[in-house]
Deep mutational scan, measured.
Amino acid sequence: MAAAAAAGAGPEMVRGQVFDVGPRYTNLSYIGEGAYGMVCSAYDNVNKVRVAIKKISPFEHQTYCQRTLREIKILLRFRHENIIGINDIIRAPTIEQMKDVYIVQDLMETDLYKLLKTQHLSNDHICYFLYQILRGLKYIHSANVLHRDLKPSNLLLNTTCDLKICDFGLARVADPDHDHTGFLTEYVATRWYRAPEIMLNSKGYTKSIDIWSVGCILAEMLSNRPIFPGKHYLDQLNHILGILGSPSQEDLNCIINLKARNYLLSLPHKNKVPWNRLFPNADSKALDLLDKMLTFNPHKRIEVEQALAHPYLEQYYDPSDEPIAEAPFKFDMELDDLPKEKLKELIFEETARFQPGYRS
């Protein structure tokens, strides 16, 4: 834990890192770190609560700039109880001085990944967590956004079992017609939660990839272990087919990539493993919904509104309290091709509203 900075004593240090967030945020305490930044909790002297502050230093890398800009653009436009918001952003007053960006968010005690390492969940908890994931996802999908990296560590939890989806750095506007060349190379989302079509096709992607990830998360809540822990690309596919069985001819016809289709045709026939054999203690309604989410063919996979209306979630289902976005989200430009200098300018502009004396 960093010592509390005395008023006016300059930035606090946390594990050798400068955290320049005073005077409003003090009493910093280390939480963890990701690929390009550290997260601390801090005391907000204005709202009198502890908050989470993520320090991001992305400006050396085009990919990190892209992810940072995506996350900020999306989260500043989203407003939903099951999606983490941005409360404040701290950065230098000029673009030349801006080396880091500090993002202030609600402090959540833990995440689903940490929880599943230590606790076996009751059916009631599984049901409530799944409902909140789908409630947040309904809003995301209504904005025409794909999260693309749903996994237990991106689901934040607090002691009252509130759940918030975080990390929109890989999110995209849904565009089933656009052929994202190089899709697989830039697709760094965790393999275990990846839909089979991501490994088999490169053309376009749809909201059904997020539903697949939610199915993987439900299976993990039922058993405290990942359902498809593939060691590499082909191993991942083999794990999936080992449980779902061989795809039907109709399902194979959806695979545009001939090499991928021929690979699947070359494999020995596998039978589907019954879900109640894998999860003998699970609620039968939970397994019915799991089956509809972990469907090989993305066109037959359940959609988020149908999933919310499934009998497993009937005690929570309330369409009048499951809000959607006001308007579909649009990125003005494809960020993939922009140089990091341009992305830095866009991050600077996007964060201006939090600067003292800002006038829109």
Rank of each mutant, 00 (worst) to 15 (best):
I126N: 05
L264G: 04
A171R: 03
L75A: 13
I165G: 03
N47G: 08
L150V: 12
N27E: 13
D20V: 02
H239M: 10
F348M: 05
A4C: 15
P319N: 12
A171T: 01
V145L: 01
V304W: 11
P298V: 10
D111Q: 05
A282H: 15
G245Y: 05
G10D: 11
N154W: 05
T206P: 01
Y263V: 07
L170C: 08
W212Q: 02
F78W: 11
N257F: 02
L278S: 10
N82M: 11
T118G: 09
N257I: 00
H147I: 06
E322D: 07
A3G: 15
P58I: 14
Y43S: 09
R67F: 12
P323A: 11
Q306D: 13
L184V: 04
I86G: 15
P298N: 13
Y64T: 09
D20C: 13
L200P: 03
I240H: 11
S213K: 04
L264S: 07
H299V: 07
M333H: 07
Y113A: 10
L241E: 05
G230Y: 14
I140T: 15
L265A: 09
L289Y: 02
G357W: 14
Y131F: 01
E12W: 13
N253S: 07
A35Y: 06
V21F: 04
L170N: 06
Y30R: 04
D318S: 14
L346N: 09
D149W: 04
E326G: 09
I133R: 03
P176T: 00
W192Q: 02
I227K: 07
I165K: 04
G32I: 04
R359G: 00
S153N: 04
L75H: 15
E96P: 14
I83D: 12
Y64W: 07
R50S: 00
P58W: 15
Y205I: 06
D318E: 02
A9E: 12
K55E: 02
P196I: 04
L338M: 01
A4H: 14
G215K: 01
I227R: 05
Q236L: 01
D162G: 10
L294K: 05
Q119P: 09
A286R: 06
T159F: 07
G357D: 00
K272L: 08
I95K: 12
Y64M: 10
E12F: 15
D100M: 14
L234V: 06
P280N: 10
K138R: 03
E81C: 11
P58E: 13
T94G: 11
E220G: 02
F78D: 05
G136L: 04
N45P: 14
H269R: 07
R353N: 12
D124R: 09
S360A: 01
G242N: 14
A282V: 10
D336L: 12
H120W: 08
Q132W: 13
D20R: 14
I74T: 08
P319Y: 12
A4R: 05
E303L: 15
I31N: 01
L264V: 13
D332C: 14
V188C: 03
T118I: 08
R50Y: 13
L265Y: 11
E349Q: 13
T206D: 10
L116Q: 01
S29N: 05
L264W: 10
N144A: 10
L343H: 07
L200A: 06
M199S: 05
D210L: 02
V18M: 12
R225E: 12
I90T: 12
Q105H: 01
V101Q: 06
A3E: 11
D288F: 07
L294Q: 01
V39E: 00
N87C: 15
P274N: 13
H141V: 07
Y113R: 05
L343P: 07
A174P: 05
D336G: 07
F329A: 13
Q97I: 15
T181F: 09
Y205R: 01
R79V: 10
L76Y: 15
L155P: 03
L112D: 04
R24Y: 13
V214D: 03
L115M: 07
R91S: 00
L218M: 00
I95C: 13
L76V: 15
C40A: 15
D283H: 13
G182H: 04
P268N: 12
A2H: 09
E341Q: 13
P247G: 13
R191S: 03
E12H: 09
G357S: 05
S57G: 14
V188L: 02
E186G: 06
Q17M: 12
N262W: 10
E305R: 10
L115Q: 00
G22K: 10
V51T: 15
A52L: 03
L278G: 08
G32W: 08
I126D: 02
S41F: 09
Y36A: 10
G10M: 08
G182A: 05
P339S: 03
E349Y: 15
D88L: 15
N45M: 15
N224M: 08
V46L: 08
I165L: 04
F183A: 12
P196D: 02
L335Y: 08
D288K: 09
A92P: 15
A9Y: 11
Y25R: 06
M13H: 07
V51D: 00
D149E: 01
L116T: 13
R15G: 04
L264Q: 00
F348S: 07
L121V: 09
F78P: 07
H125G: 02
L170Q: 02
L313Q: 01
P176G: 06
R24P: 11
E109W: 10
D291W: 05
K151V: 02
I56C: 11
R15T: 11
G32L: 04
S142M: 13
E345Q: 13
H61T: 08
A2E: 15
L218Y: 09
E341I: 15
D336W: 13
M98R: 12
L258Y: 10
G242R: 15
L115V: 09
K151C: 02
K99T: 04
S284N: 12
D288E: 00
Y312G: 04
Y128V: 07
G37A: 03
I255E: 09
K292V: 13
A52P: 05
L252W: 12
T159Q: 04
G22E: 02
L115G: 14
A7G: 09
A5D: 08
V173R: 04
W212S: 01
V14Y: 07
A143F: 13
E60V: 02
F331N: 11
G169W: 08
A309S: 01
Q132F: 08
F59V: 08
A143I: 09
L28H: 11
K114C: 06
D291G: 09
I126A: 11
Y43F: 03
K138S: 11
N257D: 03
N45Q: 10
D336H: 12
I86E: 13
A92W: 15
Y263K: 06
R77V: 15
G245N: 06
N82H: 09
L308Q: 04
F78C: 11
S208C: 07
Y358L: 06
S153D: 14
I31Y: 14
S208Y: 00
Y113G: 09
F228Q: 08
L308F: 14
C254H: 03
C254L: 05
L116R: 11
H120C: 11
Y30Q: 08
E305P: 15
I256T: 10
T68W: 09
F279D: 09
I31G: 14
E314Q: 13
E96V: 04
P328K: 10
G85S: 03
K55T: 11
D124Y: 00
P58Q: 14
V51K: 12
V173E: 00
L294F: 12
Y113P: 05
Q105E: 09
Y312N: 00
A7M: 12
T94I: 08
G8Y: 09
F354V: 05
R172Q: 01
L134E: 02
I227Y: 06
R225T: 14
M293V: 10
R67D: 14
C40L: 11
G22H: 13
K164I: 00
P23Y: 15
F78G: 08
K270C: 11
L115I: 14
A143W: 13
P298M: 12
Y128I: 06
E12S: 04
D177R: 07
V273F: 12
P229Y: 11
S223A: 01
Y263R: 06
H120F: 12
R301C: 03
F354Y: 02
V14M: 08
E349T: 14
N154K: 01
N262T: 12
F348K: 08
I209R: 01
D210H: 06
D321T: 14
A195L: 05
D124F: 07
Q119E: 11
D179A: 00
I133K: 06
I165H: 08
F59Q: 10
K138M: 10
N224E: 08
T63S: 01
Y102H: 06
D332V: 01
V104R: 06
T185C: 02
T206I: 02
F331T: 14
L241H: 12
I84C: 13
L130G: 06
